[in-house]
């Protein structure tokens, strides 16, 4: 019996685990079961209490009217009907989807370029660490810094953009707000994403480039024909992790725009938060969260399929 759930399989063994287990005396195997129980206990406890139980409970909440003070009251499909007819849910999902797709597209293109430069210029770890700075800073500080840079009165970046002929790029400008959110999230994630892709590029065997160079390939040709195909698994992983992450955008909006954000940036996490913690509609918030779960599960499924298709690239 060998595990087939995880991606790659046992590397360091040349023996079938079943054969090996059969050779072991019974006392050892009993000891092993107890050891497994002990080793699994903490994580399983955390899993049962803070994953399984709340997941089941969340599903139950989604069918109730629950204000946190009195007990949840079963209302059947009422919340679902409300959700279908609630334009703000669909509007928020649309905004979130546009935000996610745009910020991933921009981040991936820039990060690929940056990673390729890191690889070619052999950028030292000091510079690479510097590029990680925005990833380490809480989004609260990032939201504050950028709302100041783009302040409508004396924002430094806003003034700069005005001087080169791009007016109206201010934080609270409804038309620019979503674009600004995308740019901030790109700025915050660029270095981190580039480093992950760069790590993938380090795995590409050097002689492939040397052979291609002997064949007269150009830098660009090598990038498209060698680098991109061979880092596709890392690329797929990064894309979907970013996708799931950016669907959860919240802090930038909640801090940047305060308690009453302009409609253009009301993302889905903010809407759920508002329903649950401002209006105490825990049941309805759970219904929206359940919808989000279904959407993200579908996206994750698609991702896993993509990754499997890409596995053999560097075999």
């Amino acid at each position: 019996m060998s595990t087939r759930i995880g991606a790659d399989e046992v590397v360091g063994t040349d023996e079938d685990p079943a054969v090996e287990a059969a050779r072991r005396p019974g006392r050892l195997r009993r000891q092993e079961k107890w050891a497994a129980l002990a080793l699994l206990l903490p994580a399983t406890l955390g899993f049962l209490v803070f994953y399984i139980y709340p997941a089941l409970r969340g599903a139950w909440f989604s069918l109730t009217d629950y204000d946190l003070l009195s007990d949840p009251e079963f209302t059947g499909m009422d919340n679902v009907r409300t959700l279908v007819a609630d334009p703000q849910v669909w509007q928020s999902l649309r905004i979130t989807a546009v935000f996610s797709l745009a910020s991933i597209a921009v981040t991936m293109v820039l990060a690929l370029g940056l990673a390729a430069l890191m690889q070619r210029l052999r950028l030292g770890p000091g510079t690479r660490a510097l590029l990680l700075l925005p990833w380490l800073v809480p989004n609260v500080a990032i939201a504050l810094i950028w709302s100041w840079l783009l302040d409508a009165n004396v924002g430094f970046l806003k003034n700069l953009l005005e001087q080169i002929g791009i007016p109206g790029f201010t934080f609270y400008n409804a038309e620019a707000a979503l674009t600004i959110l995308v740019l901030i999230s790109t700025w915050a994630g660029l270095g981190y994403t580039a480093l992950l892709l760069y790590a993938g590029m380090l795995q590409v065997p050097h002689d492939l480039y040397e052979a291609a160079a002997l064949d007269g390939a150009t830098e660009a040709g090598m990038f498209w024909r060698i680098t991109i195909p061979l880092i596709r698994p890392v690329l797929a992983l990064v894309v979907v992790v970013s996708l799931i992450g950016s669907f959860q955008v919240f802090d930038l909006v909640q801090v940047g725009y305060g308690n009453n954000p302009i409609p253009e940036v009301r993302v889905i996490y903010y809407y759920i938060y508002q329903q649950a913690f401002n209006f105490y509609r825990m049941g309805y918030a759970s219904t929206i969260a359940l919808l989000l779960l279904l959407i993200l599960a579908t996206l994750t499924f698609v991702q896993l399929r993509l990754m499997r298709a890409n596995r053999s690239d560097l075999a």
Partner: peptide, 14 residues
């Protein structure tokens, strides 16, 4: 696959 917000609400209740 569970988005954190889905368990966050019941975890807060707990």
């Amino acid at each position: 696959m569970i988005p954190p917000i889905f368990t966050l609400l019941p975890n807060f209740a707990l």
